[in-house]
Write a protein that binds this DNA or RNA. Sequence first.
DNA 1: CGGATGACGGGTC
DNA 2: AGACCCGCCATCC
Length: 114
Amino acid sequence: MGDSNDFFEKVYAVVRQIPEGRVSSYGAIAKSVGAAKSARMVGYALHASIQNGVDIPAHRVVNRNGLLTGKFHFFSDTLMEQMLHAEGVLVENDRVVDFKRLFWNPSEHINDLL
DNA sequence: CGGATGACGGGTC
DNA sequence: AGACCCGCCATCC
């Protein structure tokens, strides 16, 4: 079953691997599930996860610059930042402080999943 | 059916 | 650094 539902499940599986206090990006996740050119679809999948109440740490996914581009899709527009802050990730002007250091690359841990 | 619309990213200026 | 463009592709209208 290589349909879009499959893609969603793969994305969710990867997002669940992001450790507490760390963050990843749409593009990095897209690569790790073998769809490097579909970073946009990762965002789409995360949006769907919230609508469907899927239990994944979607707040740990930001864009390539560490910007909280998805914050408006949470129940409150400050929830994403609050959740990150609760696990020790600081945010300033919608950007993850020390993004490079906190960045978690799924492809370097691919052996742990699929 | 065709154009617009995104939780994007790489490249260029 | 920041603005801009273009490729990408499922979904929407």
